[in-house]
């Protein structure tokens, strides 16, 4: 794999002010992403996993300049261009939009019900002015639709007539039609049953190799991530808590949260019922996170220092970083 870095985020933070809460006093703030450093190698299939609400979607969107960045920098360099996303100008941003795409988490919300599938897929081309004639647009749409195994008859229909999995292929076709370099796939196979999921994942992998794409693949399905990603980062409450080459992460998880995730994967054996390791303790609020390590309220190994100081992400092995005060002690 080439070692060129496509996305390089430093001290990246995204904060949201919330409605609700108290009428007087400051509005609560959610630190959806806080102080994240992230390198995504060009051509990699980079997995991002973590608790619901931990900031995965927000981080993915920030990498596309589609979330309000409060602090930090993101560099995008694909060998042809180099942009710093927080200071990027309009013209560059327009170009960046053709080079990066998002495949949505919710295929129901993502597709406009009043457009035919053909028009949905063609829209990015038309909005960005990437084609010069209707024939050319049609040609591009047909080409990408075939890649995503949608047929001509599908193109004339409206999205409501499709089931979740079929819609997800439409979203994928739409994301690919501008021939981007970088794709953020947010829970793109969560709605799919396993045999189609295998098919779509094989498809994404194929497309990635063929077109040399880089994927940021957001998922909470660890077995899927294990099979398709070459590197995995784990988030908890806005922070990166562990990052490692896939094999390493699954064979030697070092953060207690990663360990808990791996042990909670539902087993296919009905006799394993009730044997899944469960986490005790309070799930912290993103508006009022605990001091110290954000995982301390649920961590079976938390001690005083964990409740006081926030651990930094440190090198623990080749390509393997972990943010835990006790990772060395907990090696066994």
């Amino acid at each position: 794999m080439s070692q060129q870095v496509l996305i390089k985020a430093r001290d990246l933070s995204v904060h949201y002010a919330l409605s609700g809460g108290k009428i007087f006093g400051p509005k609560p703030v959610v630190k959806a992403v806080e102080g994240v450093n992230l390198d995504i190698a060009k051509g990699s299939f980079f997995g991002l996993v973590g608790e619901s609400g931990s900031g995965k979607t927000t981080l993915g969107r920030a990498c596309l300049k589609a979330a309000p960045i409060s602090r930090g920098t993101i560099e995008f360099s694909d060998g042809e261009v180099q942009y710093e996303l927080t200071t990027i100008d309009k013209k560059q941003l327009k170009d960046f939009r053709t080079r990066s795409q998002l495949i949505f988490q919710d295929p129901y919300a993502a597709l406009s019900p009043r457009m035919t599938v053909r028009d949905i897929i063609a829209e990015p081309l038309e909005v960005m002015g990437l084609t010069s004639s209707r024939e050319e647009t049609d040609e591009r749409v047909r080409e990408v639709a075939a890649k995503c195994r949608l047929n001509l008859e599908h193109l004339r229909r409206f999205p409501h007539a499709f089931s979740g999995g079929q819609r997800q292929r439409i979203s994928i076709a739409r994301a690919l039609v501008s021939r981007p370099q970088f794709i953020v796939a947010d829970e793109s196979v969560a709605a799919l049953d396993v045999s189609i999921q295998a098919d779509v994942l094989n498809l994404l992998k194929e497309i990635q190799l063929e077109m040399g794409l880089t994927f940021l693949f957001i998922s909470h399905d660890l077995s899927v991530v294990a099979h398709v990603c070459d590197h995995v980062a784990v988030m908890y409450l806005g922070r990166l808590v562990e990052s490692a080459p896939t094999r390493q992460l699954f064979s030697q998880p070092r953060h207690p949260y990663t360990k808990a995730l791996l042990s909670a994967i539902p087993s296919l054996d009905p006799d394993d019922r009730g044997k899944m390791q469960k986490l005790e303790g309070e799930i912290p609020s993103p508006t009022n996170p605990p001091p110290g390590c954000k995982f301390q309220t649920r961590c079976p190994h938390a001690i005083d220092i964990c409740r006081r100081d926030e651990p930094k992400l440190v090198h623990s092995a080749e390509g393997h970083e972990v943010a835990c005060h006790r990772w060395q002690e907990l090696l066994n």
Partner: peptide
């Protein structure tokens, strides 16, 4: 599909 968007610890 009630738990597709949940991490496995919350799903449990």
């Amino acid at each position: 599909e009630p738990t597709t968007a949940l991490d496995v610890t919350i799903q449990a």
